[in-house]
Write a protein that binds this DNA or RNA. Sequence first.
DNA 1: GCTAGCATGTAAACGGTTACATGATTAG
DNA 2: CTAATCATGTAACCGTTTACATGCTAGC
Lengths: 178, 178
Amino acid sequence: MASGDLTLSILGLLGEGPMHGYELKARIHQLSGHIRPVSDGALYPAIARLEKAGLVERHEEEGTGAARRQVLTLTDAGRAELHRRLREPDDLDISDQTRFFGLLTFLSQLPDRAAQARVLRRRLDFLRTPASFFYEGGRPQRAEEVPDPFRRGMLLVARATGTAEKRWLEEILAELEP
Amino acid sequence: MASGDLTLSILGLLGEGPMHGYELKARIHQLSGHIRPVSDGALYPAIARLEKAGLVERHEEEGTGAARRQVLTLTDAGRAELHRRLREPDDLDISDQTRFFGLLTFLSQLPDRAAQARVLRRRLDFLRTPASFFYEGGRPQRAEEVPDPFRRGMLLVARATGTAEKRWLEEILAELEP
DNA sequence: GCTAGCATGTAAACGGTTACATGATTAG
DNA sequence: CTAATCATGTAACCGTTTACATGCTAGC
């Protein structure tokens, strides 16, 4: 998971309800498709930072294991921060597919359909601007121009990916923007 | 660009020929589609690390600008390391699309078609194992089962993406594995 | 008796971002 | 004369990885 995503995941999951650290870990594991297990060394310091920033509160509870559960609850400030991150993603969140999907995972928590639509619209605009992995003389290269077979493949796959995502975005925006 | 990718990019670009840091920066910029400009604070320390590790050698050359160009050349050890990274990518390089594309960018430098094919085969195997962003009770969820419209969209897009990439991998593997 | 799972944490090392610093050449 | 480009670097800060540390409970 790219940097910064962990904080969003924690805020997003706690936005669905209070839970303790170990459960957060399991839920993030489910969300990311078993690919990137969250390490304890990343999770617990991240929780501590959020607590220190007043975005999360904790209260102890007996658990089934040894260490007592630290049940985490999103504060009002925490929910505001979650909404802010969902409402005003930075350019990187919009341009990087992994990060954008990180946003999408929790976008339904944004309590404003127009704001949801604005985020999707930004992504669609980004996908529509002619782009490529490879540039020659400032212009994006077409797949057909790329001699390297593996790089050509990347462009072909990226094109198919972009097409599929644009189609979906257009569909869902048609529903959201009446 | 995800962590560790920068080193691979430098090794891969220098594998195509000697160049100085500023040119590396421009080339990486071209490769990544203008999304993530490499910062000087990441690039020059990365070069210094590679030099210290004996993977890269530098010799000065007059440049058009003020500071003298530090022309970088891949050593034999550097080329060996590049090949090792291309030949034996870790699981993260195979499972993460951004990272896998980072590999693909330089895969043609691997001087062994069978080894190239093995890398592509690993990616294809990964894409073929049933997976999803979301798991319920250990099983990947189908798009149709996901009530959240944004998460459902992610799955639809991911499915289309996977299909396109599998098709391409099958094609190119048919050429590489006679 | 041992392993797997539950549950939370710390510390060192590493790498990336951002900002700062310098300075020469070239085009407008 | 001034802004953009060429060209290389350092330093503070931040978050992640990896490894270490602890200890209870349940099932084999």
